[in-house]
Amino acid sequence: MIEIRGVSKSYNNGAIKAVDNLSLSVRPGEIFGFLGPNGAGKTTTIKMMVGLLRSDSGSIVINGHDVEKEPLKVKASISYVPDYPEVYEKLTGLEYLTFLADVYRVPRAERMARMKHFLELFNMTDAVGDLIQSYSHGMRQKIVLIGALLPEPEVFILDEPMVGLDPRSAHNLKEYMREHCDRGKTVFFSTHVLEVAEKLCDRIGIISHGRLIACGTMEELKEQAKNTGSLEQIFLELTEA
């Protein structure tokens, strides 16, 4: 589970507040969708969760471990998929996956079974022997996804995971996210695809100008926005200012 308490992050010596006193919690077994306009603070929040950025204040606790105080324990229990799949182009897909399996210490039997399963699920078996340099954007996204799924993380954190995926892969990813949470694990992801968030997420948080302006189930969001329409209508209304 994820506990974010009063987290703030600013740039330019405080001139730009990217995240402003953000608090939210995500429970085990929950898919949490994180929405917001461009530049609202989604990626900054996610980067602070995975240890790529330090917060100015507040705390982030994942699976009972504080990101600042016990970063390795946090990293061992999460997997992260960034918004842009910037990976080692001069490694083959398979070398990249074995590298991640090694550093996450995935035992031999499990790594073999999972690699085979996910490579087939995302239709990457034939391409896995090629250099990542030759992959399309979508294939890179898929190899990063597979790499992140190999350790079977307790908490799966994804930044815009659907971008670049073909419809079948996007569908498979959504199915996997659901199964993952059904096993009591947690998924936290940001997206601009509101239909996906509406259908898939147990709860949704909307961030604007670094502040969480709404959070809850679809029903709760409708109540908060006093709008019984779609998530799109609620989103547009809440983020209008």
Partner: peptide, 14 residues
């Protein structure tokens, strides 16, 4: 593929 998948190294060696 299986042979390559089955290779396990320590993190430092990886």
């Amino acid at each position: 593929l299986e042979r390559k998948m089955a290779r396990v190294s320590s993190p430092a060696a990886a």
